[in-house]
Design a protein around this nucleic acid. Structure first.
Lengths: 253, 253
DNA sequence: CAGTGGTCTAGACCACACC
DNA sequence: GTGTGGTCTAGACCACTGG
């Protein structure tokens, strides 16, 4: 899928070599001069492509040295945040899920506000229990705007990612805002997650939007804090990366 | 503090106009042609400076349109994460702090592991209660490696940011890893923060390092979840931005 | 249409890394 | 030293936005 411009094609080609393993982690990339030769472009174009990869965190390195492939591409943060299944698999565990409810009803005030709807306007609510190695780790409450939510009835949410299913139907979510906090487990959540009532839960709420800025999903995910945490790697002048992580078992709380 | 290269100076100048308000939010920047004229550089240099600002999230906008100043500069994520005081002030509140303990003792196993020390090796422990509008919102336990921690005795931690004090003494922290989860409040924490024992706390643990990669601080911050949350803005292909936020009062838990 | 940013080229000099 | 990336210039054409 060449992306039009020359430097984008060049970046795609190099990215492909990295993710395919043709360029191993820690290995230096070809020098700019060689890339100019190989692709027949000017050096400026090569540098623009390398700049793209650097921004994506795929390569690092400085003056005088050839850039090297970064340790762990750590996946696309965006995807990591959106797909529970992908996260669990990358952690070396087995994902599972059980859809408890898939219903059309009037929007509750919180979701309505996030989705820019009036309370009571029809929406699609999904309640899913997410499993990691057959153990309950997260309770997911999602509210989709009606036209998008109706698509959910077309495919089995237990089969895989809802986002993947939507994407296959032309719904591309490109932006999301997440808020992380902690709450005491209400009785229902405690029962479903198998934790004590009133015990701490790690909560992530999100509003997901399309390219035109229209919010289409409001989500409220509640994690067992002993089974999931969020991690941010933070470097001055560089950018943030955030991933979900599975804590080591036996970690002191 | 001009940063050597021309494009960096240009970026500094434009950044200054934005943060000072000379260029208001939503206002378009001067066109590239005008900047070339004004600064007497080539267009490539101007574009490199604009690229820097775009990467920092200060400006946005596309082809054919002049770039505009972004709605929320949302501060430097790195600084936001490191400085409690700066965060509180940016939220429009009044920061405060009370140092409960500043002690030299043997490292506990968790901190020792993070700092790559042997348990029991001498370190400097700091226990601070952080206030927002005179209300307790966060309990901060920090462990510094000995040579860095000893600098803390040179200045008043209640005066302002520890990081600022260290920076003034030549200790520049450039990277950090943060883990966010939720825990039940132990008795001591509950008392200091004024929350029920066993109630949920939002915890952020971090390991902060110098440019050479040496970890120098291990921190364990515990927030009242009704007074602080973490927010991530997430755009496909773009980068993540994470900030602490003060929730609206009266928000449903 | 004119103005603007997006892309690309060709060549130059410098600073740093490694031998 | 040689090779490398970092910086800068001057000029060109295209694609998009706006009046």
């Amino acid at each position: 899928m060449p992306s039009g411009s020359l430097h984008a094609k060049l970046a795609d080609a190099l990215r492909e070599r990295i993710v395919s393993g043709a360029l191993a982690v820690g290995e230096p990339l070809p020098s700019e001069a060689r890339l100019v030769e190989e692709f027949g472009t000017s050096r400026g174009t090569v540098r623009q492509a390398l700049s793209t990869l650097r921004n994506e965190g795929l390569i690092e390195g400085g003056q005088g040295r050839r850039p090297i492939v970064r340790r762990r591409p750590m996946g696309q943060p965006f995807e990591t945040f959106l797909s529970f299944s992908a996260w669990v698999e990358r952690s070396g565990h087995r994902p599972g899920q059980r859809t408890i409810e898939l219903a059309r009803r009037g929007a509750d005030p919180v979701a309505a506000d996030a989705l820019r709807l009036e309370p009571g306007e029809p929406v699609i609510d999904v309640l899913r229990l997410r499993l990691l190695d057959d153990e309950s780790v997260m309770l997911e409450r999602s509210t989709f705007v009606l036209d998008i939510g109706l698509l959910l009835f077309d495919f089995d949410p237990d089969a895989g990612s809802i986002y993947a299913g939507l994407l296959a139907r032309g719904v591309e979510i490109v932006a999301a805002t997440h808020t992380i906090d902690a709450i005491a487990a209400p009785a229902e959540d405690a029962r479903l997650l198998g934790v004590p009532k009133g015990g701490p839960l790690l909560r992530e709420r999100r509003t997901a939007s399309l390219a035109d800025g229209r919010p289409v999903e409001y989500g409220d995910d509640r994690y067992r804090p002993d089974r999931a945490t969020f991690t941010i790697a933070n470097e001055r002048a560089h950018h943030l990366a955030l991933v979900r992580t599975v804590p080591e078992t036996g970690e002191a709380l």
